[in-house]
Simulated assay, not measured.
Amino acid sequence: MKKKLLIIISSIIGVFLLAGGGYACYLFNTVKASADQMHEPLKLSTPHEKPNISGGGNSKSEDQPERTGPDPISILLLGVDERKGDSGRSDTLIVATLNTSKKTMQMVSIPRDTRTEIIGHGTVDKINHAYAFGGPSMSVETVENFTGIKIDYFIKMNMEALSQLVDAVGGVTVENALDWYEGGPNGFHYKKGKLELNGKRALGYVRMRHDDPNGDFGRNERQRQIVMAILMKAASITSVGKYDDILHILGDNVQTNLTFDNMMDIQKNYRDVRANIEQYEVKGQGGKIDGIYYLTVPDEEREKVSQMLKSNLER
């Protein structure tokens, strides 16, 4: 797979912003209405200082000289599998860091079974349970504790929306590394090699893990692959009607503490980070503890991940 993600879930929102395009004026009001619908404040036990993303002068203290240009930022991307009567769990967790000075975007995936302290809940559990216990706020604080960095923004997306988005862009093409068959009355053969997928098939593609020798690691790779395919297809769309469909889907399925103005600042000031995109997945040892499967991440791996993220958050 070509590892050229923009901002994973956030870039599905931002594809209109980062990619620019000739329909900006027409879409402005529609994008703003969708952004307002998606907005959800982040309630943390200790509120964070807002990063400077506008690109203007910024001086945080008398001891620091005035700085120009936008600050590096971090975004937690949550892909949540929500079903009726269930608060859902964040089966996809990706920490994205964007640094305009280095023109670098970093994408670090945290496997959902990662065993860690759930901040605000007083337990040690799978990291994806933080969302079920306390929504985006608990997820953010738990990921902050695990990675050792401050999270500026979150973007949560219902994974069911992936199916709708794939259909909205007219289907996607992926390069499948495995060969497997999805059973049932409408079974489908996911042949190895190039595949053309509609929304239903794409959702099956990202959800499969039991037939994958790499388990969740393989599934996470396919999730990134589908999102990338959506982004590339969306970026090439020339129909205003298609954009309207996509924005409607996003408004119904995405929550974020990014405001419309934040999104416009990212579009204006962070688009060059696409020049250098780095991806990494947290590694650990899988096994059962008290009969429950976890991924145990060694301290040295956590430190490695923390230093990677901190490095791209330096000016």
Rank of each mutant, 00 (worst) to 15 (best):
G14Q: 10
T104G: 09
G199H: 04
E281D: 13
G14F: 03
V169I: 10
G20K: 13
K4F: 11
G199M: 07
N58T: 10
L203C: 04
N158I: 02
Q285I: 09
N99I: 07
N158K: 13
L77D: 05
D212I: 01
G120C: 07
L18F: 10
K283I: 01
A235N: 07
M228A: 15
G88I: 04
R219H: 12
G241F: 15
G170D: 03
R219T: 05
V174D: 01
D125R: 03
V15W: 02
S311L: 10
G241Q: 07
D245V: 02
K32D: 06
S45C: 02
K242P: 04
D211C: 05
I246R: 03
S87D: 10
I94G: 11
G193E: 07
T97I: 01
A161I: 10
L231S: 06
G134D: 01
R115M: 13
K310C: 01
E66F: 03
A96H: 00
N269H: 09
Q37S: 15
F260Y: 15
M159N: 04
I155S: 10
N312G: 04
G21D: 05
Y26W: 05
P70M: 04
G291I: 10
D36E: 15
L309H: 11
V240G: 08
E278T: 08
L93M: 14
M105C: 14
R209Q: 12
K200E: 02
D113G: 14
M38H: 05
K304V: 00
G57Q: 05
F133C: 10
R201Y: 00
S45T: 12
L197A: 09
S239M: 14
D125K: 03
G122N: 07
F188Y: 15
T123D: 04
S306G: 13
D63V: 03
E221Y: 11
T238F: 12
A202C: 13
H248F: 02
Y205I: 00
D261G: 10
D252R: 07
R89I: 04
R219N: 06
K191D: 11
Y243Q: 05
D212P: 02
N220M: 12
G215L: 06
I292N: 05
V80N: 01
A96C: 10
I149W: 09
E301H: 01
V227C: 06
G193A: 13
G251K: 01
I151V: 15
S139C: 14
R207D: 03
E301S: 05
D261V: 07
V282E: 06
F154E: 07
E141R: 14
K126Q: 14
K50W: 01
K84Y: 13
L231R: 11
D272N: 15
